[in-house]
Every structure is written in C-alpha cells, then in structure tokens.
C-alpha cells in the first residue's frame, strides 16, 4: 500500500514537472521572463547621470560624443540596432538583441568600461581586443548606418575577435577589410556558444551547418518555443532576400534572424515576423520554403 502511494506521488510529481510549462502558459499567457535584469528607463537615467569622458586613448577613432549618442540609441531603440551591409556581422547583431532587451543598463555600463579601459567583461566573458581591432573601430565605411555607429563597430569587432569557430581557422587575425571575410563569419556551434556565454541563458539548439534539422512541423515547433523565449533562426538568406536569378542545388545557411512572431494564414501561407538589419519585417512564405530555408533553430529560454 505504502509502495503504491509512493508510486502515485512520483507519477503526480513527474506529471506536474512535465505539465508546469503548459499550465503556466495557459494561465499567464507567457512565461515570466526571469532574464530581465534592467530596463530601458534605467539605462537612459544612468546615461544622463554619467560623466562624459574625454576621447579614449584605446579607441582612437571613436569620438566620445558619437559614442555616447550610440549608447543612448542602444537604450532607446534597440530594434534599430543595425549590423551593416556586405559584412558578416549578422550573427553578432542577432545575439545583441538579448543584452539590449534584457539588460540595457548592464550592456551600456560594459560598453563604457570597454571604451575607457580598452578591456572589460560582460557576464564573465572577458574582452581584450588587440591593437588592430582598437584601431579599426570607427573606421568601417560604406556599411549603411553602421558607418555612424562606432560603438556597434567596437562591439562587433570585439565579438568576432573573442569567439572563434572552425570557419575562422583560415583567418584568425584581423586585417583591414576582414569584416567581410571568413574572419567575421559565424558557424552555428559558435553562435550557440556565444549566446550561452554572453547572455548566460539556457539555450537549446536544433540544426547544423549543412544538414537541416529533422523537425516535422517547423511552424508548430517555432510557435511553441516563441512563447517560452527568444527564437533565432539560422537560414539560407537566399530564400529571404534573393540576390541572383541563378539556381543552385547546393544550399548553405548564411544568415541569422530573430523570430518575433509566426502565424499560419492557411495551409500554404505562413506570416513570419522577424528582426534583422535594424528592421522588423513581415514576410509571407510557404511551409515548404520555411522548412527549406532553416538550418538551425536556437531557443534562448526566459530563464537563467
């Protein structure tokens, strides 16, 4: 009898553990976000109170006035954060969505320390950029509005310098123009590693660099995860933004986006709302195209 009670209790506890997310979702509509550590208003108040510094002796091409303006932009309009044109910064930009959303104050404080001291740590990750990086930030040109955002240039270059994946083995050290080359590129494992380390969140990833993930119903999979956190897609950019009219049988992923919403219109149409290039976009695609385009689905849960 005692054993039977224990069995029943274990069964109930297991059922509750499994069902808790579903129940929580049902009653609270979404999961409480325990990753939010500061707010936009706190970041703005801190930026207003902070003493403006002189030019940095480390980042000699980043004027302090523009730098502070950029930090204010990070706090006020995080969705305008722009990765730039014709470079390989999309992974770093997608990743920055989380610090800007969850911890704008901490991120701005980190950026100021990096500016003043030439080195700083964020969530325990140390950034010690080399001389080439220090010199280059502020000089990137013809990248769209990134030209006017030396603070974002600093951050992108630091991330690319700090984290390496197998794609970076052929070109490990920065030379002028390397923001457009394999030096800055990000394979899927590197992206997930960066996300775990920099954002300190529970990250679940499905997919790989060449093989698509085995997910039967991609729409439902993304939709369900979206309710419990942030979803990043690693996909072949050609399906979102066609640049050529030639057809290639060999498809590889080249771009990272953040899914903001996904809705099924009918059996053949899905509305995908995503964020990239500093804009929220809505694109109507077919379930087949969605499956074909996606090589990786990363889910950063709203819990640390």
């Amino acid at each position: 009898m005692k054993q039977a009670t224990v069995h029943i209790l274990i069964t109930i506890s297991v059922w509750l553990t499994v069902r808790t997310p579903v129940l929580a979702n049902k009653f609270f509509n979404h999961f409480p976000d325990s990753t939010q550590t500061s707010t936009q208003s706190q970041a703005i108040a801190w930026l207003d109170s902070v003493q403006r510094t002189d030019s940095s002796r480390f980042w000699i091409n980043v004027p302090p006035g523009i730098f502070f303006e950029n930090l204010r932009g990070f706090a006020i309009s995080p969705l305008k954060f722009y990765e730039g044109r014709t470079n390989n910064f999309c992974a770093y930009s997608a990743l920055t969505f989380l610090p800007l959303k969850n911890d704008p104050l901490g991120f701005c404080q980190f950026m100021l320390k990096l500016y003043q001291q030439g080195r700083a740590s964020y969530n325990g990750v140390n950034f010690r950029p080399g001389k080439a990086i220090l010199l280059e930030a502020g000089l990137l040109k013809f990248k769209g509005v990134l030209d006017l955002n030396p603070a974002a240039q600093m951050w992108f270059l630091c991330l690319a310098d700090r984290f390496k994946g197998y794609l970076n083995f052929v070109n490990r050290n920065f030379d002028k123009g390397d923001e457009n080359t394999l030096w800055a590129s990000t394979n899927y494992a590197k992206f997930n590693r960066m996300l775990r380390k920099v954002c300190k969140q529970k990250v679940r990833a499905r997919g790989a660099d060449i093989i698509r993930p085995f997910i039967n119903d991609m729409f439902s999979y993304i939709k369900e995860r979206l309710q419990r956190g942030t979803v990043f897609l690693y996909l072949n950019n050609r399906f979102l933004y066609r640049k050529k009219h030639t057809f290639s049988r060999f498809s590889i992923p080249t771009h990272y986006i953040i899914v903001l919403d996904i809705q099924k219109i009918d059996a053949t149409k899905i509305n995908l709302v995503y964020w990239d290039y500093g804009l929220k976009s809505l694109q109507q695609i077919s379930p087949k195209l969605l499956r074909k385009a996606i090589f990786g689905v990363t889910h950063a849960q709203n819990v640390k």
């Binding site: 804009l279 929220k280 809505l282 694109q283 109507q284």
Partner: peptide
Amino acid sequence: GIEIITDTLRYIYH
C-alpha cells in the same frame, strides 16, 4: 516582389 516600408514594419510580398 515588393518591399513596403512603414513606420513599424517592412512588409515583403512575393
């Protein structure tokens, strides 16, 4: 295809 840019969203239609 057409991309229409509004204040809040960029609509991409094919």
